[in-house]
């Protein structure tokens, strides 16, 4: 069995928890969130016909990320940077979190998600976000509400992680 720790990073209310909820459903971890400030969920994905367990670490509650403990990132095999497409100010937070993640984890796979894609009426960010993504300009529009792009985002990150660990392709 292959298991990876994945972190959900992003400003307050961008939809991190909603994305995880959309992607998995597990009751188990909920009971811990209040005490630990972190909620962990699990979802299995298939990469090249191999099952991979994604352990999804999500900051519980409505904290702003800067109070998140250092150890939250430790050991992550990859992470999502979530931006709220209706609030361009969340890009800034994502950029600063990205720097922190790189400092801590080095060059591990990551994906930028522009969430709340269903709210095209209030869309507030440029298509490329003006964000130093790796690969440059790559981002996935997701909607936790409709589910659009969510599974694709998780599958893609899982595949990237597998590739970077020398298994994938």
């Amino acid at each position: 069995m292959i298991r990876h720790k994945i972190c959900m990073l992003g400003a307050f209310a961008v939809g991190k928890t909603s994305l995880v909820r959309r992607f998995v459903h597990s009751i188990f971890s909920e009971q811990y969130q209040t005490t630990l400030g972190v909620q962990i969920e699990k979802r299995q994905v298939e990469v090249n016909e191999r099952s991979i367990d994604l352990m999804l670490w999500d900051i519980a509650g409505e904290d702003d990320f800067f109070r998140v403990p250092e150890s939250y990132l430790t050991g992550a095999a990859g992470y999502f940077l979530v931006v709220d497409g209706t609030r361009s100010s969340t890009i800034e937070v994502a950029v600063s979190l990205s720097e922190r993640a790189v400092a801590k984890l080095g060059d591990v796979p990551s994906l930028v998600l522009a969430n709340k894609a269903d709210r095209t009426d209030a869309w507030d960010v440029a298509d490329d976000l003006g964000f130093p993504t790796r690969p440059a300009g790559e981002l996935i529009r997701t909607s936790a509400l409709s589910g659009d792009g969510v599974a694709r985002a998780f599958d893609l990150l899982a595949a990237r992680i597998e590739t970077s660990s020398g298994r994938g392709q």
Binding site: K5, F28, Y32, L36, E41, K42, M55, P69, T74, G75
Partner: peptide
């Protein structure tokens, strides 16, 4: 049942205490 979730939570708890 979800041993891997337990393990992850144990780690989180450890980290939490450490932090």
């Amino acid at each position: 049942d979800n041993a891997d979730l337990v393990a992850a939570m144990l780690s989180a708890i450890q980290d939490f205490v450490k932090d």
